[in-house]
Nucleic acid binder design. Structure first.
Lengths: 231, 231
DNA sequence: TCTTATCAGATTGTTGAACAATCCTTATAT
DNA sequence: ATATAAGGATTGTTCAACAATCTGATAAGA
């Protein structure tokens, strides 16, 4: 029934559906498959097949599609079906414009929440542990968490939501890259940035973040352009 | 069939549906009703009634509900129905956190697009014309357009989308206030801000914007708190 | 050969009816 | 007055059907 071996297979049964609709449950499963790479960008999602596999009706599945389409993880082409979003280089550049805006504002903000700083330390530690074991996918997860926490310094539910969506979208490109080449360069910088934040050297932190984002963008743009122009 | 006299009645027939699904068409109509005040916050949207009125099936209508729920214009309570969102003071405060972040970043950005500056001039002129005629709702529309253009200075599709959604949400509170009291104070400031932007005095612009947003937030928070605590 | 037209198959878009699950209100009993 | 139970109303979800549209292959024409 459900494809085994894929990393999101655990708990695909319905305990999550304690207090949410079937559509949201289906959306949650698809969201995980997309972000974790079980469904690669460009894949087509056929209504009949998926509905049968998830054991929901086509109508319910279509409600889930609408949700994920709005999150920009799926692309809905009228009369042509639903596809996992394929990011263009322009999308990557745009995502980094958003990241600069959000994370820049967060780093610049004066009094940082100590709880968030502690959470940042955890994320850095987790990333380094995972790196030590060679688990580069986990490093990526910890890295995204790190930046989500950075955004949360602004203390805004809506900004948190924007950031989460933006990072989920960005993750679509990750699967086009070697995870080690992608994450290794930023491991020490996350620690450096945290140190600057903790000691209140915000101007330096802002500068480090800027160069950080510039380089990450360059890396992903390259990978993305290569994936778009394989021939 | 459709309630006559409501301000969004024109063109509710289906010319818009040139290349979009029925669900999106229904969502567009509901979105307009909500943002233009035809449907007030707290109103309940009953599936059967609305489906009959819009002449779409319940399933299609539910797809539209999902879209607008994701835009935070409607609130979906499981097994209890769909309601036009009611913003709490905390929501208003959060929206203004977002506005400060986005518009602040936009104003701070060095080289402004001349086309956008021209569009800002138009918006200011439209607002002043409407104010002269006493059309305060149109003033509000022009004002929102003004700030949407401000955001567009960042040149990011995603930021534009975030801003559009945020302003649509904010508009929910507008209906709880006298439009003149809400918009009149900001008419001259929009012009002043534009002048500062055109002459490149970005620091002053940033400061003016900050005080602008602070005062607008205060006004709306008051109205919002009064609406929440009528007894 | 290259283009255009046609056609069948497959998939999506949308509907209407049906029924279960849940909520809300009212009536009843304690 | 409080608690419980019944009933109606609305939502949640499914199913089957058909129309609309796309896709690809085949056939006809330049």
């Amino acid at each position: 029934m459900s494809e085994r071996g894929s990393s999101d297979d655990y708990e695909e049964t319905r305990p999550i559906r304690v207090r949410s609709s079937t559509a949201e449950w289906a959306a949650a499963i698809l969201r995980r498959r997309v972000t974790q790479g079980g469904l690669l960008p460009g894949s087509r999602l056929v209504e009949d097949e998926l509905a049968a596999e998830l054991e929901v009706s086509r109508n319910t599945l279509r409600e889930a599609f609408r949700l994920l389409g709005h999150e920009r993880l799926l692309e809905h082409k009228l009369n042509r079906g639903v596809y996992v979003r394929v990011l263009s280089p322009a999308d990557v550049a745009d995502i980094y414009r958003v990241r600069r805006m959000i994370e820049g504002a967060a780093v610049r903000r004066p009094d940082k929440d100590p709880v968030s700083l502690a959470a940042l330390r955890d994320a850095v530690a987790d990333a380094e542990t995972a790196a030590g074991k060679g688990h580069w996918l986990d490093v990526g997860t910890a890295d995204l968490r790190y930046h989500q926490i950075i955004a949360s310094l602004l203390g805004s539910r809506r900004v948190n939501a924007m950031m989460a969506q933006t990072l989920a979208e960005l993750r679509l490109v990750f699967h086009a890259m070697d995870p080690r080449a992608l994450h290794a360069p930023f491991l020490p910088r996350n620690r450096d940035l945290l140190a600057l934040l903790e000691s209140g050297r915000d101007a330096e932190a802002e500068h480090l973040l800027a160069t950080y984002l510039d380089e990450a963008e360059r890396l992903l743009l390259a990978a993305c352009a290569a994936a778009v122009t394989p021939i």
